[in-house]
Nucleic acid binder design. Structure first.
Lengths: 207, 207
DNA sequence: ACATGTGAAGCGCTTCACAGCG
DNA sequence: CGCTGTGAAGCGCTTCACATGT
């Protein structure tokens, strides 16, 4: 019960657990590890082990208090404060992300959208105006953005990531179909439609 | 050198390796594991181990033949034939996916786009017309779709996944922010913007 | 000389199984 | 009794280190 470091795989599951908890009926006060596991598509033992890293206390013979557990996970994930996000690359995907409603629910605020194409600069997307890349650095600083979303074509992604890092962004979510070399001190995660489809065809091709 | 089963993690990296190989200068004939590793952001030993599962043969002292290796990986991933894809849910994200250019390069063909909203049915998106859900089952069969993309709101995702499975789809890529219970015999993968952002804030919150 | 291919060691995560506690 | 919390075992992946082959 000492506070061991939280394994990366556990961190990746916590948002899922949180969402499952939020999907429970409004009146439900308690939940067992097996019940939550069913919703999350894992085994009960994994839920208990994962939650044990948070030092969370359920009640033996009873289960977990839903509200308390949600609160614990939110604290762990840093969701008790707002996070300012900038999006670079306002093509189809960037526009979809800018319009994505899910940001607000989780206290992510899109504070700037940027594109290098002069034809796109000035357009309005979901209440924001597309700004030129020249304004990125100042915007990140002044609006205190710590997360950058890269939705550019592959060839521009590394340069944009470096620019975001230089501007002070500490976390990058990369939607460009390319591996970015993480700038020093910056956490990069990749979301890659094309890769996911190819994993699916691997299994399709041999079944 | 017997053909052991390819580990899941290796399958997930093969598309990345393929993309890195394709990004090499046109004239380059050979590549070493360390060189490819640098591009892919991994260690050389991992490349060699991963490729060993394919029974691929590099040349000791020299490296891998680029064209041959690309071909081997494409075969392994089932990318030597076309795959028909249907997209369900034509909101911002679904529209962005329908417009996504990367499909064609990898031999994925979008053969149908569907939405339950009568106001969206009939609209044209990137050369396709949005069809009503009632036509999904027949379309999957007649157009021989094996992959379904779920881009609906969370509350509709399970139902849509089940409908896709019933229609004969064997692989589903789920963009809805919810865990889908995989229908019997169907491989489901999840792509989740909100989850990824929350993983980032976990690390932001403690640095 | 050089880079691959691979046993073996190391590491981290999953799952088991049950002690502990309400 | 029921469900959590957790050592311990099991499993799969990563990394090492070097024998192997050109």
């Amino acid at each position: 019960m000492v506070r061991r470091p939280v394994p990366r795989v556990t961190v990746q599951r916590l948002p899922v657990y949180l969402r499952c908890l939020e999907s429970l009926p409004a009146g439900q006060q308690r939940v067992s590890s097996d019940e939550l596991a069913e919703l999350a598509g894992v085994l009960g033992a994994k839920i208990r082990k994962d939650l044990s890293y948070l030092g969370t206390h359920g009640t033996r013979g009873v289960g977990y208090d839903v509200e308390h557990l949600k609160h614990e996970i939110r604290i762990e994930l840093g969701l008790t404060r707002d996070w300012a996000v900038v999006i670079v690359g306002i093509g189809n995907l960037g526009r979809a992300l800018a319009n994505y409603g899910g940001f607000g629910e989780r206290r992510f605020r899109v504070v700037g959208i940027f594109d290098s194409d002069p034809l796109k600069v000035g357009r309005r997307v979901d209440g924001l105006t597309v700004e030129p890349m020249e304004l990125l650095a100042r915007a990140v600083t002044e609006r205190n953005a710590s997360i950058g979303i890269v939705a550019t074509p592959a060839h521009a992604a590394q340069e944009v990531a470096d620019a975001l890092a230089a501007a002070g962004v500490r976390s990058i979510l990369n939607f460009a179909p390319v591996v970015i070399k993480p700038p020093e001190g910056v956490e990069v995660r990749r979301v890659d439609l094309s890769t996911e489809l190819q994993v699916l065809t691997f299994y399709l091709a041999r079944s």
